[in-house]
């Protein structure tokens, strides 16, 4: 064989051997362990950090919210769907509270062809006059509870009410600034709050033991009795807040409690003409979480003491509406 052929074959052999060795040594370590791929990559991908952490992650610190959310119809909407991923929270700061609720809520609740009929949907243009959704709806418990039907005997209620008169007045108009007027309140609200005291869902040093003594019939009778009384009360003298400033703040309350404090829904109390001292106390109690109501807790969170005083002054000065 001529010399150049031998050399050529040698050259080819060297190239081949070098290539084959290069292939062997450049092959990634875990390649071919399970198949023609890098097995280490499976571990790498499986070890990536999660961004969304699930509601269980939120539960420990936000137990109250979690409990309320998980007991209500939005329990299928996870915390992070509205508040964003919890990775890095709380170390790296707070999670956002959605500001444009109309935009957020309509993602699911805008009436739209293609959405199954089981999905609660609204005609956006005809609903709520452009108010924020959370004006009326608590995002964690969005269903607005219809007022329970109350039927009782006002005469029996009047008898039972004798025990209440020392604080709430014999006509349901409280003689003391710090106790609420009951006269003319919606029966449904009265029944609801009394039941709450009785069950312990709502606590008050004075009310709790008294309410525990009441039977369910008593509660119904009392509610009907007080609801039927005239709410006209003497004008309040010792008002400390600025009613005009209170009117501006009161815009946020109007959706439920009416523009002048006369509620549109019998499940909610009237606050027009209510005792200002009581209003101040109760708002502060909501703000501090002593009195439990998710809706009120949300709306009172941002109120200052001055706001509360002003609100109380404004509502105390409004004319209540007596039952016909």
């Amino acid at each position: 064989m001529p010399k150049h052929i031998v050399r050529l074959l040698g050259l080819i052999a060297v190239v081949l051997v070098v290539s084959l060795l290069a292939i062997q040594f450049m092959t990634a370590e875990s390649f071919y362990r399970f198949g023609p791929y890098r097995a280490d990559n499976v571990t790498e991908i499986a070890s990536l950090e999660t961004v969304y952490q699930t509601p269980a992650y939120c539960k420990d610190c936000h137990s109250e919210r979690h409990a309320q959310w998980s007991a209500n119809s939005h329990k299928s909407v996870t915390c992070e769907t509205c508040h964003g991923p919890a990775k890095g929270h709380p170390e790296k700061g707070k999670l956002p509270i959605p500001s444009d609720t109309a935009k957020l809520c309509t993602l699911c609740h805008e009436a739209m062809p293609g959405r199954p009929s089981t999905q609660p949907q609204i005609q956006v243009a005809q609903h709520a006059n452009g108010q924020s959704c959370n004006t009326c709806h608590n995002p964690h418990a969005p269903k607005i509870v219809a007022a329970a039907k109350v039927s009782g005997d006002p005469a029996a209620g009047k008898q039972r009410a004798a025990a209440c008169a020392s604080c709430h007045g014999d006509k349901g108009i409280s003689p003391n600034d710090t106790w609420p007027n009951l006269a003319g309140q919606p029966a449904a609200y009265l029944a609801k709050i009394l039941s709450a005291y009785k069950s312990g869902a709502q606590k008050d040093v004075a009310m709790t033991p008294l309410a525990k003594e009441l039977s369910n019939a008593d509660i119904q009778n009392l509610a009907v009795y007080y609801a039927g009384l005239s709410c006209d009360a003497p004008a309040q003298s010792k008002v400390s807040g600025d009613a005009a400033a209170g009117k501006a703040v009161a815009k946020n309350c109007a959706a439920c409690h009416g523009e002048t404090g006369v509620s549109s829904n019998p499940a909610w109390p009237h606050i027009a003409g209510q005792q200002p001292g009581y209003l101040v106390n109760v708002l502060k109690a909501f703000r501090a979480g002593l009195r439990k109501d998710p809706m009120m807790a949300g709306v009172t969170r941002g109120l200052s003491d001055t706001d509360i005083a002003n609100l109380a002054a404004y509502y105390a000065g409004q004319k209540c509406r007596s039952p016909k």
Binding site: K3, H4, R7
Partner: peptide
């Protein structure tokens, strides 16, 4: 390029 071989004999070319 010659790979060090200048062999252009008939035999080599036949190869």
């Amino acid at each position: 390029l010659t790979l060090g071989s200048y062999d252009v004999s008939d035999k080599a070319l036949r190869y």
